[in-house]
Simulated scan of single mutants.
Amino acid sequence: MLDVERYYRVLDLDSNASPEEVHQGYLDMTWVWHPDRFVGHPRLQRKAQHKLQELNEAHECLRSQSAAKRRQMARKSKYSASSPPARHSPSPNLSKSPTQQKQRKQAPPTVNTKKPPIHFKANPIDDWLD
């Protein structure tokens, strides 16, 4: 479990981050630590290559861990004890004429497309470059 905590620290995230936050944190940190940003600074470029390897490892581990959790949850819900389906009475719409049925259209459900803001801890640039 200590490796997982280290992976969250590498991505600069809280340990209760969602898979979307993990991926966004990975994208943010790879942008910061991409070796191409340090052309002309060999020491920083080597450090960035090492840091990028850590980021890739952390992202892969946390991503596979979240996929395993989703599979486990799906398996639990699939095999959970459920009661047999209840018998339904005939549909009340069967006695209505087709024109009456067409008049009763339902509005499409609204989808919340607003994503919650992603918060992550940011370390000062001096800590990153040492």
Rank of each mutant, 00 (worst) to 15 (best):
E60I: 00
F38Y: 15
R6C: 11
H59T: 04
P92L: 04
S82H: 13
N56Y: 10
Y8F: 14
P85F: 05
H88F: 05
L62D: 05
P124D: 07
Q45D: 04
S77G: 04
N16C: 11
Y7M: 06
H23W: 05
D36T: 10
D3L: 10
I118G: 00
N112I: 14
K102V: 12
F120V: 01
E5A: 12
E20K: 09
E21W: 03
P117G: 04
K76V: 10
F38Q: 04
Q106P: 04
N16D: 13
H88L: 13
H41D: 15
D126C: 08
A17P: 00
D126V: 09
K69P: 00
R87H: 10
V22H: 00
R87G: 05
P124Q: 07
Q65M: 11
D3S: 08
A58G: 03
A48Y: 06
R71G: 03
P92I: 02
W33C: 03
Q53T: 15
F38D: 05
P108M: 04
R70Y: 00
I118C: 06
P98Q: 05
H50G: 15
H50R: 10
G25Y: 01
S89D: 14
A17T: 02
V4L: 14
S83D: 13
T113Q: 11
L2W: 07
S82Q: 15
Y79N: 15
M29F: 03
S97H: 11
T113I: 03
P98Y: 05
T113L: 14
D36E: 14
P116Q: 05
K102W: 06
Q65T: 07
S18K: 06
R43N: 12
Q106I: 08
R104L: 10
V10Q: 05
E21N: 05
H41Q: 15
P124I: 03
E54N: 09
Q24W: 11
Q101G: 00
A122Y: 02
F120H: 04
P116V: 01
P98S: 05
S18C: 07
Q45R: 12
S18G: 06
P92F: 04
Q53A: 15
Q106L: 09
D36L: 13
A74S: 13
P84N: 00
V111H: 06
R43H: 08
L27H: 02
S91Q: 07
S15R: 02
L27G: 03
S77R: 15
P98G: 02
R43W: 01
Q100K: 08
Q101R: 14
L44W: 03
S77C: 04
K105N: 08
R71T: 05
S66N: 07
L129Q: 04
L11F: 03
A81G: 07
Q65V: 03
L13I: 01
S66K: 12
P98E: 01
N123G: 09
E20H: 01
L2N: 14
W128D: 15
N123I: 08
K102C: 10
Q106K: 07
P117F: 04
T99D: 14
D127N: 10
Y7C: 12
L55S: 02
K96M: 12
G40C: 03
K51V: 07
Q72E: 14
P19Q: 04
D3K: 12
V22F: 01
S82E: 12
Q100G: 08
R9K: 11
P42M: 01
M1P: 08
R75M: 13
L62P: 02
G25N: 01
